[in-house]
Design a protein around this nucleic acid. Structure first.
Lengths: 153, 153
DNA sequence: GGATTATCGTTAGCTTAGCTAACGATATCC
DNA sequence: GGATATCGTTAGCTAAGCTAACGATAATCC
């Protein structure tokens, strides 16, 4: 029962995806109590850990957030010793953000807790569904990227 | 390069999905300025519009949120005339939430704006990728449902 | 080389969303 | 009819997002 208009199909799909993403993250947030790391902090820490030292501005851009917001996220992470601010000696306006050993360690466990909750559900899938989800997530990644690079589509 | 352990595969997939969902919603939030409706309000309004009149508690449960949070969301929606609180004459502890005509109208356009942004990106996909995304979203829906019904997997 | 302009991060101040704890009003139960 | 339970709200906290304004530093331009 595919609709004649591809527009309507795309819209229905977008609607389902939108709703699923909202509920997914809402469910996952419940794991945050245990880990002590909210989604934005977890996400930023992850970028810092895997992306090496970054300036605050780069980090804000990567996380699609304005600098003041990132300042507070970093302050929160620094207060818990997960991240360090390092001044650049060549350009002293810059602040580079680096993960500490504790940061790496906490990411490994904290992120895991959130992701594990999801992974648990993923593991319950049959291998056919798993493959389908995998492809879907790949396409989703492309979709998200393509949106980031367009102002008004 | 599929790993030998299915566990690792599921985990990597969960990680990608987690990240994609975060960035998707963050990108979509930018549409909220135009519509004047944030994601939580949009989502709640949608439930009220399509799910008929609900009590506040039912709505909170549906949205996986605590009653005080829903009280404020509803208050915000009511203040803009999108929703009405209606007392139950049989059990006067209850407050039923009903969408107004304006609420239905605004949902149609406001939700569309957010979803349209996403739909625009979806439309740019080839038909093969579109089909893959569709299947993936279906599976994702099942995954999210299965998580909601399990405390600790 | 010194003034102007641009960039970077922070601070201040606002809104919204989430939570728990405590409360008042109403139903229900013995 | 008095104890108990349920429902929604209020109060008060934290965190995330934003814009506007600022201070410090670089870069540019006479």
């Amino acid at each position: 029962m595919t609709s004649r208009k591809p527009d309507a199909r795309a819209e229905a799909l977008a609607d389902q995806l939108h709703s699923a993403a909202i509920h997914l993250l809402r469910t996952l947030r419940k794991e945050d109590d245990a880990s002590g790391l909210s989604a934005p902090r977890l996400s930023a820490l992850s970028v810092v850990v895997f992306g090496g030292p970054l300036t605050l501005g780069q980090l804000a851009t990567a996380e699609q957030v304005k600098p003041p917001t990132m300042t507070r996220i970093v302050t929160g992470l620094a207060k818990e010793g997960l991240v360090q601010r390092i001044g650049d000696s060549r350009d002293r306006r810059l602040t580079r953000i680096r993960a500490t050993a504790k940061g790496r360690r906490v990411l490994a466990t904290g992120r895991a807790r959130r992701v594990e909750r999801l992974a648990g559900a993923v593991r319950r899938l049959g291998s056919a569904e798993l493959a389908e989800l995998k492809r879907g997530v790949q396409v989703l990644g492309e979709v998200v990227d393509s949106m980031r690079n367009r102002n008004t589509p």
